[in-house]
Simulated assay, not measured.
Amino acid sequence: MTTCVEVCVDSSESLRQALLGGANRIELCASLHLGGLTPSDGFMQQAVRISTVPVYAMIRPRQGDFLYSDDDIEVMLSDIHGAKQRGLAGIVVGSLTPEGFVNEAILRQLVRAADGMGVTFHRAIDQSRNPMEALEIIASIGCERVLTSGCAESALEGATVIKDMVNTFGSHLNIMAGGGVTAENVRGIIAASGVSEVHLSGKTTRPSGMTYTTADASMGAVDVNDYSIAVTCAKKVKAVVSACNK
């Protein structure tokens, strides 16, 4: 069985590296260090032009939880419209109630706005109160896929829960394992969970090309090195693809 390898990227450089490594699908984001936010319109346009595989846009207007206000929803609906206009294959969404259940009303709005695009429900499910009940709702509303770590810190740790998801809902939803996926553990994750799709960033860092640097003015948090650039590594992606298809 062929395994689909999805790679999440947040820059043009990472996009090209993911494609070079053999990614089967791209999740387009901004700010992966925050768990992934909605990519810019310019990045969406460029990704459609560059990518040779389907591109899904993360639709997440801010960092933090998945409890969204009316203003947040307005932004999300506008971003979905933009992704559709740019010709992306799909979107990645999720929304919860204060009590930790899937917010059915909001999810229906988002899926309706996608209007024929593919829809993945992201790892908000790993913060839900009852993941199996959540899957039933997600499937009934029309999502095609769920990304999950099995409610654990990593997909390997959550493989037993992911297997239960696959066994119960695999005929209605694609269950995609994500969270700490590497070439070294991906075969174990697949064997233990039964998934046919995996998700990773394949991140590494490279030094800045700046010949002049300064420590006097940081562009963000003081513990973030502005001269160390996080980027997807084509070799890491290729190694996962190779391991999956042995």
Rank of each mutant, 00 (worst) to 15 (best):
C233W: 02
A234F: 02
G209L: 11
T232R: 00
S218Y: 11
N225V: 07
G220R: 09
A217E: 10
T211C: 09
A243R: 04
E197N: 06
K238A: 14
K238R: 07
K203T: 11
A234I: 00
R206E: 13
V240P: 00
A217W: 08
C233Q: 09
S228A: 13
V237W: 00
G202K: 06
V237M: 01
G202E: 05
D226C: 03
Y227N: 14
T214S: 15
Y227D: 08
S208Q: 08
V237R: 00
A243D: 01
S208R: 07
A234L: 01
G209S: 13
D216E: 14
D216K: 11
S201N: 12
V237N: 00
V224H: 06
T214C: 08
V224Y: 09
K203W: 07
S242L: 06
Y212M: 14
S208V: 11
A234D: 06
D223H: 09
E197Y: 03
V231N: 00
V237L: 01
S201E: 07
T211E: 14
A230L: 05
T205Y: 08
D223E: 13
V237Q: 00
S196E: 15
G220M: 09
R206D: 08
T213N: 09
K236D: 07
V198C: 09
Y227L: 02
K203E: 12
A230Q: 08
G220E: 10
D226K: 00
M210E: 15
G220Y: 04
I229L: 14
Y212G: 07
G202H: 06
S218H: 14
T214W: 02
T232M: 02
G209M: 11
V224G: 03
A239H: 02
P207C: 10
V241H: 01
Y212C: 09
V224S: 05
S208Y: 05
C233I: 04
M210I: 05
T213Q: 13
P207W: 08
T232H: 00
P207I: 10
S218L: 11
V222N: 09
A217Q: 11
T214I: 05
S201C: 15
Y212S: 13
V222P: 05
N225H: 11
M210T: 08
H199S: 06
T205P: 04
A217F: 08
C233D: 15
I229E: 04
D223A: 09
E197L: 03
A230M: 05
D216G: 15
T214L: 04
A234G: 02
T205W: 08
T213G: 06
K238T: 02
V240Y: 00
T213K: 13
V198G: 04
A234Y: 04
S242H: 10
H199A: 09
V222L: 10
K238M: 07
D226H: 05
M219W: 07
A230D: 04
S201P: 05
S242C: 03
D216S: 13
Y212R: 12
N225D: 15
A243E: 07
K236W: 02
A243Q: 06
S196H: 14
K203Q: 14
T205E: 13
K236R: 12
R206V: 15
Y212V: 15
D226S: 08
G209D: 12
V240A: 02
D223I: 04
A221R: 13
K236P: 00
L200R: 06
M210P: 08
D223Y: 10
K238C: 11
V240N: 00
V241K: 02
Y227A: 07
T213F: 10
V231T: 06
